[in-house]
């Protein structure tokens, strides 16, 4: 066999690997879309579940997921972006900075179920928030923090150093340079990172298992100290915990969750490519 033939076969194998990776993705999405679409109608989205969840809609789960995502955003956006600004603009290469980076890397690697344990220990029990939207949001926020910090830091660092130098040379303080130039320029990247982080939070089940999620609660939450249903947990419940569950409701729920997450993904991608094209540097 000639070297060219080896190369051709090799490349074909690589392509095959790539196809093996992406085909199942299409299969998952296609399967859920096709089988879930049958369940989707206005009532499914806006009605309370009935009959031990075997009928009715998923409204409280949908609302619960939106509320949790919102709560997560409120906490982790300022913390994450602030932390990223610190790392990119203020921190020097000291042992403290290295410790912070190490902390972030490890936060990113902690299993989501361990976040759930932590949330249970700190927010639910120790701080006595109880199983509540507050406890769940805080848990999800801490889980999302490293994602937002690292993507935001990357966006900040991508802004050319020279802009900061120019700002300094024109009598700007460090913060003025950040405020007026660095942050606006990094904003699209930061927003993309935030959406990607929140999308993960919206789809997570393990951290909310013991901190907020209600098995079956056919009403809307009334306060931040209330429990709530949530889409991912609901899907888990109806696919493993309830015998005799109609299949179309399972697929419908999976589809809604998938749609929420993928549309956020799409928005992030669009923002990124739109601003990348318009960028002035």
């Amino acid at each position: 066999m000639s070297r060219q033939q080896v190369q051709r076969i090799g490349f074909a194998l690589l392509a095959l690997a790539a196809i093996t990776v992406v085909l199942p993705i299409l299969l998952v999405i296609g399967n859920i879309v096709v089988r879930g679409l049958a369940a989707i109608n206005w009532e499914f989205l806006t009605a309370m579940p009935k009959n031990g969840m075997k009928a009715g809609g998923i409204f409280p789960a949908l609302v619960g997921t939106l509320l949790l995502t919102l709560g997560t955003a409120v906490v982790c956006i300022p913390m994450g972006v602030g932390g990223a600004i610190y790392l990119s603009e203020y921190a020097r290469d000291t042992w403290l900075t290295r410790a912070i980076r190490l902390a972030i890397v490890n936060l990113a690697g902690i299993p989501s179920i361990v976040y759930g344990l932590f949330g249970l220990g700190l927010f639910v029990l120790f701080l006595q928030f109880g199983t509540s939207i507050l406890a769940g949001s805080l848990t999800l926020a801490i889980m999302t923090l490293p994602v937002i910090i690292s993507t935001s830091e990357e966006a900040l660092r991508a802004v050319p150093m020279e802009f900061r130098t120019v700002s300094f040379s024109l009598g700007g303080t460090r913060w003025q340079g950040i405020r007026n130039i660095v942050l606006p320029q990094a904003l699209p990247g930061i927003i993309t990172g935030i959406i990607l982080g929140l999308l993960r939070a919206a789809g997570e089940t393990a951290p909310i298992l013991f901190t907020v999620a209600a098995f079956y609660l056919p009403r809307l939450p009334r306060s931040p100290f209330d429990q709530t249903m949530a889409l991912p947990y609901h899907l888990y419940v109806i696919s493993t915990q309830v015998p005799g569950m109609p299949e179309h409701i399972q697929y419908g729920t999976a589809l809604v969750l998938l749609a929420v997450v993928l549309s956020m993904n799409l928005v992030a991608t669009l923002i990124r490519s739109y601003f990348r094209r318009r960028r002035q540097w």
């Binding site: 020279e162 802009f163 130098t165 700002s167 040379s169 024109l170 700007g172 130039i181 320029q185």
Partner: peptide, 26 residues
């Protein structure tokens, strides 16, 4: 003490914004 660098380094934004960046910060 103003400084002009070797490469032209306009800040992102318009001509007007560039010129007025310093005065506004001041």
């Amino acid at each position: 003490v103003g400084m002009v660098f070797a490469l032209p380094l306009p800040l992102p934004g318009t001509i007007r914004e560039n010129v007025l960046y310093g005065p506004k910060l001041a």
